[in-house]
Structure formats: C-alpha cells, structure tokens
C-alpha cells in the first residue's frame, strides 16, 4: 500500500490513514491546547466556537472546562432547564463574571445567547449594577459589527440578558491557528474600528477590546461583543472609580493598566484596536505581562 510523507511531522502516512491524515498529528491535535479555544478564569465570558454542525441541537457540545465559581447557575444537560422564557440548551462559555448559554427563546422560537451573572442571587450590588450597565450600553447599539442585545431580565434572583447568537468563533481562536496575512488583518480591524467608532458616536466605550471579544460569523465578518466593562460617556457611574483595574492587560492602554480610571476614554478603545491589529500579524499581543 502506498505511503506518503506527512508535511507536518515527516512521518510516513499510509494511504488508508483516518481521513488520509497522519495519525500521529491527529493525536497531537487531540492533545492540543483545549484551553486556547475555551474560556479560562482569565477570560471574560465570551461566545466561543460552536461545533461546526451546530445547526442542529443534537450536536451541541458544552465546554469541557468548568472553571468553578459559585454553582448558582442553572445546569444544562440531559434535563431541560428553563430560565424565564428561555430554554437553556448548553453552556457555551464561563468567565470571571458570567456564564453564557446557548438558549432558545420559546415565545419567539429563536436561538439566542444568554449571559447570566455567575454569582446569581448572591451577587453584590456592584456586580448587579455593572451587569446592567453592560446590557444597557450594548442594547442601545444597532450596528452590523456589534452583537445585538435583545432583552435584559431577572429570574429568581438571576440577572441575565439575551443577545444574538453568533454561529462562529472568536478572533482569538482564529489567530491561535497562526498569524493572519496583513491584508486580511487590516480588513478585519477596519470593520472592528467602524463598529467601535459607531459605539463612540453613541456615547459608549467598550474598555475591554481584545481578540476574544471579537466574534467571527460564518461569513467571516467580525462582531464585537462582551461590553462587560462598557460605560456611557455621559454616565455618572462610579463603579470603576475606585482604581480597580478591569480589563485585559495585554490590550490595555497604559493609563488603564495603571488604574487611572479617570483618564480612560474613547482613546482606550483606539489603543486596544491597535493592539488587536498588532496581535493578528505576528500572532501575539504587543506586550505580554
């Protein structure tokens, strides 16, 4: 039987290898860094990669990782779980503040992503207020480059909001495959910049822009999500006025990283957009702490 050489590892690969792929490299890929395509405690909740056949519910796979946190959120699995009008189908992602579920809104019979605060009914007032600020800020934005917010609600002490379900993965998972060609990177960042400009024009800054917060839909178009730290430019919230650093350092401007929250404005997002562009070309952020 004719063998060929694997371009990845140089091993001989039999013609009847699984899907004609090198078994050694397939196993290497199986050992691969699951965390790189799943959320970790260092990431905010972000919509991540759905199974490629996610058009049907029967192939939905919840994330393998459970990063812990208070178990005050509805489990999903073999039992049907409802949260208000939403049937929770699977857990998509879990971060420091929230859990994101794939859900079906029964009344409108549509698939949505539902983000719920992790601490549930025991959340602090500050957590609840920040959560609602996020929802309020994003709900007022209507742009093709921004994941839309549908509804904000509370169910038995659990605060949540529903948003558009993007059948794709994040820019972070895309770049984990390797750097992008400069032209492709520039086109993506151009669209991200237009979306952010729109948000700024409407008085909203994001403050945590990073590749993991940019989803790529099935047509390859970027959509900014997770306005978890957003605030209105004209808002009077003092939630982050205590010097508490919120955000992801690798993509933060110096003033934000040093906790000078009073100085954070639209330019913070501009810095982050630049850091994203940088990341896409060599495959790593400009600064790694």
């Amino acid at each position: 039987m004719e063998n060929r050489i694997c371009p990845e590892c140089g091993s001989r690969v039999a013609a009847d290898a699984p899907a004609e792929l090198c078994p050694k490299c397939l196993l290497q890929a199986g050992l691969g860094n699951l965390e790189s395509e799943n959320p970790t405690p260092d990431h905010d909740a972000t919509l991540l990669v759905e199974p490629v056949s996610a058009a049907t519910d029967e192939t939905i796979v919840p994330t393998q990782l459970d990063v812990g946190g208070p178990a005050k959120v509805p489990p999903v699995g073999s039992k049907v779980q409802y949260l208000g009008d939403y049937e929770l189908l699977s857990e998509i992602a879990r971060g420091g503040m929230g859990v994101v579920y794939r859900a079906r809104q029964s009344r409108l019979n549509r698939s949505v992503a539902l983000k719920m605060i992790l601490a549930g009914q025991f959340a602090s007032e500050a957590d609840v207020e920040r959560f609602h600020i996020e929802a309020e800020a994003a709900a007022n934005l209507d742009h093709s480059g921004i994941v839309p917010i549908f509804e904000v609600g509370e169910h038995e002490g659990n605060h949540y909001f529903s948003m558009g379900l993007v059948e794709g993965g994040s820019l972070a998972s895309m770049v984990s495959d390797g750097p992008l060609p400069a032209l492709e990177a520039a086109k993506l960042v151009h669209k991200i910049a237009e979306a952010i400009q729109y948000a700024h024009d409407n008085g909203v800054i994001h403050r945590d822009l990073k590749p993991a917060n940019v989803l790529i839909d099935q047509t390859g178009q970027p959509k900014v999500t997770d306005f978890g730290l957003a605030r209105r430019l004209d808002g009077d919230s003092n939630l982050t006025g205590t010097g508490q650093i919120l955000g992801t350092p690798a993509y933060m401007p110096p003033e934000q990283a040093s906790g000078k929250t009073d100085e954070i404005g639209p330019l913070a997002d501009v810095y982050s957009v630049g850091a994203i562009l940088y990341c896409l070309i060599p495959g790593r952020p400009p600064f790694q702490g």
Binding site: E37, P51, G168, G169, S173, E184, I216, G220
Partner: peptide, 13 residues
Amino acid sequence: EPAARMTASRMRQ
C-alpha cells in the same frame, strides 16, 4: 480566508 480559518478552527475543536 477568515471564514475558512474559522471553519477549520471549529472543525478542530
């Protein structure tokens, strides 16, 4: 190309 990359990434996952 971004769509192909994303599909490949999803296939891998």
